[in-house]
Amino acid sequence: MVRHGQTYFNIYNKLQGWSNSPLTDKGIQNAVDTGNKLANIKFTAAYCSDTTRAMDTANMILAKNTVSDLDTPVVSKFFREEFYGYFEGTDMDQAWYLAGAPHGMPTFRSIVEQESIGKAKDLLKAADPFHDAEDNAEYWQRLDQGLALIKDNSEIHDGDNVLLVSHGNTLLSLVECFGNGQFDVTERPANGSITKLHFHDDQIEVTAFNVQ
């Protein structure tokens, strides 16, 4: 799994779930650098969310790959970032303050340290005046459909590699769920960073996180 390259909303510290902003020059370089790191990894399949920041990153990584027979990724809304509802485009620190401060947890870090990333989703939905933001159950119902796309792909066999380009909170959510507490999930992984998940039957294990 790769987090997409840096975007303008990343620079501006804005929540960017289903909303989208373009890759910066640095973000394009993130994708190129990661593509160079993965250039000799043979991928049987590739997936990404349907945001342009993820699609652009995935396409640039595949363009650098010298050993895979893949031109484009499978694009799916199931791999989108969490939907932040009313808080889309809001300053991240302000949004998490509004969600957590009434419960004595004024920052994203404090929510995760005292509760979980799943709880952060629930608190943000509760704070959303329209209640459009995804809560934890809604989020996983969608993401699980994306994971099923990979698991049910008959062209993927034991030992094969799959590329998935996704998002910061999605990576954190997967690592929290399948990382067995080995990794720090209080801060977002770097743009272009690599996280490795091992699929075995119905089990998923995170074996590396935020490799840069």
Score class of each variant (00 low, 15 high):
Q212F: 11
A46M: 00
D50S: 15
M55G: 02
V165C: 05
Q145Y: 09
G85D: 09
Q145C: 10
L197M: 15
P22H: 12
I41C: 14
T57A: 04
G104K: 03
F183A: 11
S154F: 08
S19G: 03
L98T: 13
Q6S: 04
F183V: 13
L38H: 12
K26H: 13
E113L: 09
P102W: 08
D132Q: 15
F43M: 04
S49D: 00
L62K: 03
S21G: 11
K196D: 06
T52R: 14
S68Q: 03
L197S: 01
M105P: 01
N36D: 14
S49C: 04
S166K: 00
I204N: 00
T195H: 01
W18G: 00
K119D: 09
P22V: 13
W18K: 08
I41D: 12
G104R: 03
A99G: 11
L172E: 10
V162K: 05
F83T: 05
V74Q: 10
L98K: 15
L147D: 03
T195E: 06
W18T: 09
S19D: 06
M60A: 07
M60V: 02
K14N: 07
R80S: 04
I117G: 09
Y86W: 14
P73K: 05
V162C: 05
A137H: 08
Q94F: 13
E205H: 12
K64F: 02
K121P: 00
K42L: 03
M55L: 14
P189C: 09
S116R: 09
V112R: 07
S76Y: 08
E88L: 00
R109G: 00
A126W: 04
N161K: 11
N210H: 13
K121A: 10
K77A: 10
A39D: 08
L171W: 08
N153L: 13
F87L: 03
F199Y: 09
T186G: 05
L124V: 14
V165P: 08
S68M: 07
V67C: 02
G192Y: 05
L174T: 04
D160N: 15
D144S: 13
V165A: 09
A120Q: 01
M1K: 05
S116Q: 06
D160G: 13
D144G: 02
M1D: 07
V2E: 03
G146I: 07
N59F: 08
V74R: 00
D69H: 11
I41F: 12
A54F: 01
Y12H: 15
A58R: 07
S154K: 15
S21N: 06
Q16D: 04
L70N: 03
E187N: 10
I194S: 02
D160T: 13
A120W: 01
Q114C: 04
V112D: 12
N191H: 09
L124N: 03
S68L: 05
H4V: 13
P189H: 02
E115T: 05
H200K: 14
T107F: 11
